[in-house]
Amino acid sequence: MNSAPTRLLEVDLVVERRQVTVKTGFTLDAGERLAIFGTSGAGKTTILESIAGFVHLSSGNVRVAGRLVAGKVKGETALEARYRQVALVRQPTTLFPHLTVEQNVVYGIRRSPARSRIAELLERLGLSAFARARGAALSGGQRQRVALGRALASPFRVLLLDEPLSAVDVAAREALRLLTIETSLEHDAAGILVTHDLAEAQAFSDQLAIIDEGTLLRLGGAHEVVLSPLTRRVAELVGYGGFIPAPSAVNMWFAIHPDRVALGAVPERGVVLTGTVLATRPFGPRYECTVREQSGQQFVMHVDQPPATGALCALTALDPPVVAP
């Protein structure tokens, strides 16, 4: 008999799609938040829709608070959608187009809510002025706010977010992210964010899952996975742009991150390299340089003061992780 305590969300699934087979497994407790990060077409959305119970699983199952939501288990019937306690924000946004913004937001509230509470939620979503507008009259960012509000107002235990802020102005994202996290904690819920924006993933969640071509490559702390990607593919996906053979081990590489390279030789802070600057271009307030290292490998680095193009200079890769193929 399985005596392990029930986790709030248990996922173990295989979904066969035409282009890719999606295979993943993880568990989340109440209050935990996971970001699923990967390229387009990696199977992120399929994972979310599977957890919501809307995708036929080739094998495995999904449980919310111990109750079957998706998959086939002998002697058990999967919960009807209305009992799953799952809130889903899709990408592209799916609003109820014939209803107003306010009617959309309160749709999942079964008992008549206090007017002041709805007004406060609409205010925090930045939608007070549009409460009586319909979806078609809204911009992409406003539609995303409505979809997020509709999910947050419902009585969920698992919150599934598929790129929920991708069309929202950068300036407004922080407030909406905070609202999402607060509400999720109030519901004592588990949250999953799907995104291809690493900064967004780290800002939302404490855990990070890296998905590539349907497979879960790495699952760990949101910062830990980036600092210690373990394999070359994970390193590439989280932004490492160069790989220099590590002299200490066969078939292992130092992974070079553009933001973790310093000009000059500082051996106590990392690995000292020598490279030729091939090109320099502005990068926000800084500069991005393409460098060819002595081994012939190229990588990019972000610096405040760019060296002259063609210059041979000493560089320090700051504590570069060692990765396997």
Binding site: A52, F54, R82, R84, A87, F96, G108, S154
Partner: peptide, 15 residues
């Protein structure tokens, strides 16, 4: 009618 919005309504508590 997009079937996904029917699913959304079901998740939000509709029979």
């Amino acid at each position: 009618v997009d079937p996904r919005i029917e699913q959304d309504a079901a998740l939000l508590g509709d029979r």
